[in-house]
Amino acid sequence: MTKKHFSGIAVIISGILFALCWFYLPVEVAGQRPGNVPMLIFYNALIAITISILLTFFIILVTKKSYILGHISTFNHFRHLLLLMVKRDFVTRYRRSVLGILWSLLNPLLTMLVLTMVFSTIFRFEMDYDYFPVYLISGQLIYNFFVESTSLAMNSITGSAAIIKKIYVPKYIFPISRVLSSMVNLGFSFIAFLLVFIILRAPLHWTFVLIPIPILYLIIFSMGVSMILSAMMVFFRDIGYIYGILTTLLMFLTPIFWPANMLIERSPRVYHMIHLNPMFHYVNYFRDVALFGVVPGLWANIICLGFALAALSIGLYTKMAQQDKYILHL
């Protein structure tokens, strides 16, 4: 049996298992099902892609140990470079500004303030949750990290042409360094979030300790998307402009300032469609544990992890398969 057959069979079996779970797992165990039957097919495809790529990686790992060990030792070799690049990104960001690093804290707070003013006077949404600023800043935290890290990472390879043309560096180092430096920023945004949370005396639940889980999912997802985008940017520069518009669309499709369940009654179809947006799930997951004291069910985890692993494995695949061609297009 070839590798292809092997992963094909595994994908079919996982698909059947997935469908069985979808229809027969009780809500108490699995949590609310995300969406309708067409969504089932979409998620199923997502999980199948992930599983097949992960299987391929696994097979490579087993059959070609030296290949993987080679990659690990290269990464080890370049880890200092990665750390220096993160440090450099962070230093350059606030170089020449008077308040410097304080902006990492002020920025989310002030944006939150502006949006709160707008959405508690001009546009108002009926909400079950009483602490609108907390709701808002938590959504912003997740969305901003994703957009910032991916937008920075998108230009990371084309922007490092000078280095790439002179010396061999594994190309995934560049997008990953941008995601890591955005993580530092995420830390500051989280402090801002905590400040608002404490000042407004929002109710604290024990599930607050689960916050690292959605953040971890989100970081994996962002890394994957960053790798895909940075690779696309090399061959197709227009993606820079397209992505700018896509992120604006994404901002409105993500429940940052509107309540997530608002659409259930108003337009069930759009509500299901919006489940296609990965950020929808990450924001919901984060709010469930941080604000509402709900432990997300099986589906929420499967989908968040599914999106993350699918993005990461496609990203890694593009890097492995194409990184030698980049140089010819820079």
Partner: peptide, 12 residues
């Protein structure tokens, strides 16, 4: 200098 060193795998 430090960046270049890191490209050769040297720690700061």
């Amino acid at each position: 200098v430090y960046m270049n060193g890191a490209m050769f795998g040297h720690s700061p």
